[in-house]
Design a protein around this nucleic acid. Structure first.
Length: 510
RNA sequence: GGCCCCUUCGUCUAUCGGCUAGGACGCCAGGUUUUCAUCCUGGAAAGAGGGGUUCGAUUCCCCUAGGGGCUACCA
């Protein structure tokens, strides 16, 4: 049977980075097996629905190149792919479970149950369960007379349908990542399958949909492990074949306690969302920043996320999405949670920046410096390379080498104090004149030779000549090779800048 | 509290009984460089503890400890 995986987020807010990784792993597993990856929107909780969240999920996946084969706005033979549009579908299965004695009606209101739980807690029961041992004391079709049940339903009383967990026995299932897992039935509770609004809960909906959509592998976060025995029992009760289960380790906070949550972004100073998230009620209010807008390359994020919990078994660290599809396997997914390491994410980003193709380099520079239009592609790539080895993010290029395209204006104070000395400036002038007169090829190696000759002749050091030269050309004392910079600027521009610096700063010369 | 999952350098991880425990990020030192950065070389840094099984355990089993998840008419 062809592999089919699904990512089933609920549109209750922006997708966070852990969810994105889950989607990635689902996608990789499907593609690795030449199967299909399905996106399904689990919007059965009307109270928590957030407008714009679905679009956000779509955009995030698209940014990362995780393209669903089926899903809302992607089509497919197993739709609709929003659970809210499937609500009528679940009824027959609820009835089947009711008829076969696997489920029952329960009439307790939320308030009643809260009260009941509180009183049980007072008696020392830390987590009272609606279960085989307590259901007889609650209001349901198992404890009430058939007549009363009938009356209540006729009358229109609110009710939910609960799963009837067996009193004894055990539920076991095989997890692709963790191996066999066993739960005792008496530890389980009678989970709600259908809410009083007539919509299914996640538990029922995901089982029914996974079956109907012929999902072969259920890959989801570890937080679902405790409710998997319910799902397993549901498959059995409905007489369906079980999918494979794989529960992914969680992504943890870098500073210790607990899983990375949506709130952590502000506190820790790095994004926990793929892209910017704006207030659904006010599209101008940015609520949480994203990796994309922070300047991250999508392939870097994908690469980083893939290695958080998975590894190829060798020392390879750089993987394109295609590489990952090729190499990924659930067998090599780790069991334990992984702390999020923002620094490493930054490192991946700089790696990707340095592996840009020539074409990407050219268009990046063009985009950052419209004024560069007309320059040769070689020149533009050259500029990119000068900048890229001293930065981690694309947008940092601009500040780093803006002087290649415009005169520096003011020279940094510290540099002036340090390098702009009478004697040095005299040498600078002298040397520039020499270069001008020589009129040889204005290339980096040529310039280097010429300047070397000059300092040897004058018995001075690079340190006496180059800093003032750099300062006058770039306005700062740090940066790429000054010979590279000069060759890019060209002789006339170099002369002008030196002249300008002399004019503006000579008075400050000591 | 109960149930379930997990446990190798600070962090991400390799090791599927033979280990002088490997790699990466970060950190430190040295080299290259007019400078910053890159780059190169080197370094510090780990098997939670206790029992077993075994000729031999980081690797298998048990206990303890620690971490995490779940414990809703939310997903």
């Amino acid at each position: 049977m062809a592999t089919r995986t699904r990512f089933a987020p609920s549109p209750t807010g922006p997708l966070h980075i852990g969810g994105l990784r889950t989607a990635l792993f689902c996608f990789l597993h499907a593609r690795n097996n030449r199967g299909d990856f399905i996106l399904r929107i689990e919007d059965t909780d009307q109270k928590r629905f957030v407008p714009g969240a679905e679009e956000y999920i779509l955009e995030s996946l698209s940014w990362c190149g995780i393209t669903p084969d089926e899903g809302p706005s992607f089509g497919g033979d197993f739709g609709p792919y929003r659970q809210s549009e499937r609500s009528a579908l679940y009824k027959p299965y609820v009835e089947q479970l009711l008829r076969d004695g696997h489920a029952y009606y329960a009439f307790d209101t939320s308030d009643e149950l809260t009260t009941w739980r509180r009183s049980m807690q007072k008696q020392g029961n830390a987590s009272p369960k609606y279960s085989a041992s307590t259901r007889a004391y609650l209001k349901n079709s198992l404890s009430l007379s058939a007549q009363e049940v009938e009356e209540r339903i006729q009358r229109g009383d609110d009710y939910v349908v609960r799963f009837k967990t067996p009193m004894a026995g055990e539920v076991r299932f095989y997890d692709e990542i963790r191996g066999w897992i066993v739960f005792q039935c008496h530890e389980l509770d009678d989970k709600v399958l259908m809410k009083s609004d007539g919509l299914p809960t996640y538990h029922l909906a995901n089982v029914v949909d996974d079956h109907l959509m012929e999902i072969t592998d259920v890959i989801r976060g570890e937080e679902w492990l405790p409710s998997t025995p319910l799902h397993v029992q549901l498959y059995e009760a409905l007489g369906w074949t079980m999918p494979n289960f794989a529960h992914l380790p969680l992504i943890l906070k870098p500073d210790g306690k607990g899983k990375l949550s949506k709130r952590d972004g502000d506190r820790l100073g790095f994004p926990v969302f793929p892209i910017d998230w704006y207030n659904p009620k006010d599209s101008k209010e940015l609520i949480a920043g994203g990796y994309k807008e922070r300047g991250f390359e999508a392939p870097a994020i994908v690469n980083f996320l893939a290695l958080l919990g998975w590894n190829p078994g060798n020392n390879q660290e750089i993987f394109s999405l295609e590489d990952l599809i090729e190499t990924f396997s659930l067998e090599r997914v780790n069991k334990s949670g992984a702390k999020f390491d923002y620094q490493k994410a930054c490192w991946f980003n700089s790696e990707y920046l340095n592996h840009y193709t020539s074409q990407e380099k050219v268009s990046t520079i063009l985009e950052l410096f419209p004024i560069a239009k007309g320059r040769s592609e070689n020149d533009l790539e050259f500029v990119f390379n000068l900048a890229s080895e001293r930065i981690q993010f694309k947008h940092e290029i601009k500040d780093t080498i803006a002087y290649l395209f415009e005169k520096p204006g003011i020279l940094e104070d510290k540099g002036v104090k340090k390098a702009w000395k009478t004697e040095k400036v005299a040498h600078l002038e002298d040397c520039m004149q020499r270069i001008q007169i020589a009129n040889t090829e204005f290339s980096a190696p040529g310039l280097e030779t010429m300047i070397k000759q000059y300092i040897e002749e004058k018995s001075i050091s690079f340190g006496q000549l180059l800093p003032p030269l750099r300062l006058s050309l770039t306005g700062t004392l740090k940066g790429p090779s000054i010979f590279d910079i000069m060759s890019f600027l060209g002789l006339p521009e170099c002369l002008e800048r030196v002249e300008l610096a002399k004019k503006n700063y000579t008075s400050k010369t000591i």
